[in-house]
Simulated assay, not measured.
Amino acid sequence: MQAFLDLVGAGFLSLMGFIGLNSELMGRYGLRFLDGVWVTLQLVILSVGLGALLAWPLAIARIEGGKLLAGASFGYSYFFRGTPLLAQTFLIYYGAGQFREALTEVGLWWFFRDAFNCAVLTFTLNTAAYQSEILRGAIQSLPVGQMEGAQALGLTRVLAYRKVIVPQAFAIGLRPLGNELILMIKSSAIASVITVYDLMGVTRLAFSRSYDMEVYLWAAALYLIMVEIVRRVWDVLERRLNRHLLVSR
């Protein structure tokens, strides 16, 4: 991985120098920017992946959970979608410090004292709320006959969800899930306010030492590159998973 990052770093520095950016500034901070990109990718991949694992139970609870579970799932989604991600990040990162003794007693302070861990936890809880709503809508958009047909074949309700409902709902919700991933890439910049040296964190550090606004141009370009890569990969994935719909048209 380090050899790959070094190779990408050399290419990045060459490209930036070729298009006429400040070579001295690039020489000082160019590789640190790539380290920031790597931290951003880790942050987004972990939070979106863990959020997806949490989103499915939340979505199904809204549909199948009865008043108690459906109400709890709705309350969770309502809170995390209705409050700013920045406020949520502060609540977990700074709020954990108020309970340091209790967290130390249960052996969790090692987790909450790390800003990166707090950012991953916050982003996971936040994106799970959005993903659960996307998946709930996708499940409810399926014809009722899908579940009835699965049960008529002898599948239990759990197996029907696993074998029939979930795969179709995922395919339907693929595009909005891709949009959520892109939003998380851009929202991950919030982690920089709690001293996580992601791409925006490195940008702020470089600006505080150089006072050169060009570093924000680099950051914008790198965010745009990440978003464009995700968009293109998602287009390919969507075409592959939904090719039966294209054929039917």
Rank of each mutant, 00 (worst) to 15 (best):
Q2S: 11
A10N: 12
L13T: 09
L15V: 14
M16W: 14
F18C: 11
F18L: 13
F18P: 02
I19D: 05
G20Y: 07
L25P: 02
L25I: 10
M26P: 03
Y29N: 07
Y29I: 11
G30E: 04
L31D: 07
L31C: 04
F33A: 08
D35Y: 11
L41E: 06
L43M: 15
V44E: 05
I45N: 07
I45L: 15
G49N: 07
L50Y: 01
G51D: 04
L53H: 01
L54S: 05
W56I: 15
L58V: 13
L58P: 01
A61W: 02
A61R: 00
L68H: 00
G71N: 12
A72L: 15
S73W: 11
S77W: 08
S77A: 15
F80R: 02
G82E: 12
T83Q: 11
T83N: 08
T83C: 10
L85A: 15
I92R: 08
F99S: 06
R100E: 14
E101A: 15
E101G: 08
A102L: 12
L103E: 02
E105Q: 13
V106H: 00
F111H: 07
R113P: 00
R113Y: 09
D114S: 13
A115M: 10
F116P: 01
F116A: 02
N117Q: 10
C118D: 02
L121A: 02
L121W: 03
T122M: 04
T124P: 01
T124E: 01
A128D: 05
Q131H: 11
S132E: 07
E133Q: 14
L135Q: 08
L135P: 02
A138W: 08
I139N: 06
S141H: 09
L142V: 10
L142E: 04
V144E: 11
M147K: 12
Q151L: 15
A152V: 12
A152T: 12
L155D: 05
R157A: 10
L159W: 05
Y161K: 06
Y161F: 14
V164L: 04
P167T: 10
Q168S: 06
A171M: 10
I172V: 15
I172G: 05
L181E: 00
L183V: 11
M184P: 00
K186P: 03
K186C: 00
S187F: 09
A189Q: 08
A191Y: 03
V193A: 14
Y197T: 09
D198G: 07
L199P: 03
V202F: 06
T203W: 08
R204H: 12
L205Q: 10
A206W: 02
F207N: 06
R209Q: 11
S210V: 05
S210D: 00
Y211F: 14
Y211T: 08
Y216T: 03
Y216K: 10
L217W: 10
A221S: 13
Y223S: 00
I225N: 03
M226G: 03
I229C: 03
I229T: 01
R232G: 02
V233I: 11
V236W: 11
V236K: 06
R240L: 14
L241M: 13
L241I: 15
L245N: 10
L245W: 13
L246D: 10
